[in-house]
């Protein structure tokens, strides 16, 4: 999954898509996922990083990551695969 270029979440969790003009708000964890995906990290890499740093079970992480990815797809924030 690749996030569209030019998309940056700022420190307050605000995201503006200059191509569509839409604005978004992300919570802290949402911003962390978003940044890691934009940096091109693989799902496995993100999984390891999050599970090591946060108090979360692997299965919960997996569901949350799938859900977040589907949100990004739904909001058309990713490049065509």
């Amino acid at each position: 999954m690749k996030i569209k270029p030019n998309l940056k979440v700022n420190e307050s969790g605000f995201l503006f898509d200059p191509t569509t003009g839409e604005s978004y708000s992300l919570n802290d964890m949402g911003s962390i996922y978003f940044r890691m995906i934009s940096e091109g990290r693989s799902p496995d890499e993100i999984r390891t990083l999050v599970i090591n740093e946060y108090d979360v079970e692997a299965s919960t992480f997996d569901k949350s990551f799938l859900d977040f990815e589907s949100r990004l797809r739904n909001l058309r924030l990713i490049e065509n695969e």
Partner: peptide
């Protein structure tokens, strides 16, 4: 100690 996890959320402003 690990940090508290919260469910990641992204919302579109309408």
């Amino acid at each position: 100690e690990k940090k508290k996890f919260e469910y990641p959320v992204i919302k579109r402003f309408q």
